[in-house]
């Protein structure tokens, strides 16, 4: 077709085709960069941690050692702290998020819904370092002065709770860190929840209401079953955040490398150890052990976040399939 055009126009058409192809390749390269970044991040953690993995092998994951002088490092204490604080955060964050989503979709007056959701989203935009500072200077002293003495007084004789919730009331510790994490993940979980609750077809809810269902019954028997996948996805999303959060917990965990049964005792988490000790690491094996911890964190959060996205995408597909 270009042959029949005058030569200058043909040249122009060819140039514009070349520009089109170049532009397309440019955008493709940038999109590929997203994949490369994730892959390179994982690989660089693995590469940086290889000395620790070679030296300690699988023992690294089950060892409680953390001795910078004799060069013995193990990840069990930080792993334990990460899991415990994340578990506490879910226990607080999930019910609170569900309550907010229920209020926002079913019971709050319409004029209040917008400001309420903006307020909850504000929690997500506060930088984590501010949570950390507030935790260190305000919340930890409050825990030490008011909450922890009360726990010590009232739970001393309870069977399991006494091990978990009694101890020195110092404010800094796994319970404090877990509570702060719980507050931090609320906006992430609740915003997904109320988005999907709002997306439930009104006919389904109206049918249930017509049969005489209360608002709670509509939620538990219609909305929740309909959006189950997305709700699970939202919880995993919050878990991913809680596992990887750094600054907020670094301030209030206490950077302790001893195993403690009590949640009131200082502990550690993977992210907090790295933040606290990375610039002070004075031997290759020390640095490598910290990067190896980063690799473990990367792998675990990758899996958790991938599960979250799979659950959320499944919902998207079901909704897309509906007319």
């Amino acid at each position: 077709m270009t042959d029949s055009l005058p030569s200058s126009e043909a040249k122009q058409a060819r140039a514009s085709e070349a520009a089109d192809r170049a532009f397309r390749w440019l955008t493709a390269a940038m999109a590929l960069a997203v994949l490369v970044i994730l892959g390179a991040t994982g690989f660089s953690m693995f590469w940086g941690g290889r000395l620790a993995f070679q030296t300690f092998g699988l023992h690294f994951i089950v060892s409680t050692d953390w001795d910078a002088v004799s060069h013995q490092f193990g990840a069990l204490i930080p792993i334990y702290g990460t899991l415990v604080t994340a578990a506490i955060s879910l226990i607080i964050g999930v019910p609170a998020s569900f309550g907010i989503a229920f209020t926002l979709t079913e019971t709050a007056p319409r004029w209040l819904r917008q400001p309420l959701s903006v307020a909850v989203e504000l929690l997500a935009s506060i930088p984590s370092i501010i949570y950390g500072m507030w935790g260190l200077f305000v919340f930890a002293p409050f825990m030490a002065a008011d909450i922890e003495p009360w726990l010590n007084d009232h739970l001393a004789n309870a069977p399991v709770l006494s091990t978990l919730f009694t101890g020195p009331p110092i404010g800094i510790g796994m319970l404090t860190a877990g509570i702060i994490l719980g507050i931090m993940i609320i906006p992430f979980i609740s915003s997904v929840m109320w988005t999907v609750f709002n997306a439930v077809p009104p006919q389904l809810k109206e049918s249930a209401i017509a049969l005489g269902a209360t608002r709670s019954e509509v939620m538990m028997k219609v909305t929740l079953p309909y959006t189950r996948n997305a709700v699970v996805g939202a919880i995993f999303l919050g878990l991913g955040r809680a596992l990887g959060e750094t600054m907020a917990v670094t301030f209030v965990l206490g950077n302790a490398h001893e195993f403690a049964k009590s949640l009131l005792m200082p502990g550690n988490s993977i992210a907090a150890v790295i933040a606290n000790e990375f610039t002070e690491a004075d031997s290759p094996i020390y640095t490598s052990s910290l990067i190896a911890l980063g690799f473990l964190l990367f792998v675990v959060t990758f899996i958790v976040l991938a599960i979250a996205r799979l659950f959320l995408y499944r919902l998207g597909r079901i909704e897309g399939a509906r007319p």
């Binding site: 997203v34 970044i37 390179a40 940086g48 790295i274 980063g294 959060t301 990758f302 976040l305």
Partner: peptide, 16 residues
């Protein structure tokens, strides 16, 4: 992958 990066721990990016 982009959605995973969106909520990946920022400390890991720092190490990278």
């Amino acid at each position: 992958v982009n959605d995973i990066l969106l909520s990946a721990p920022s400390i890991v990016i720092g190490l990278f």
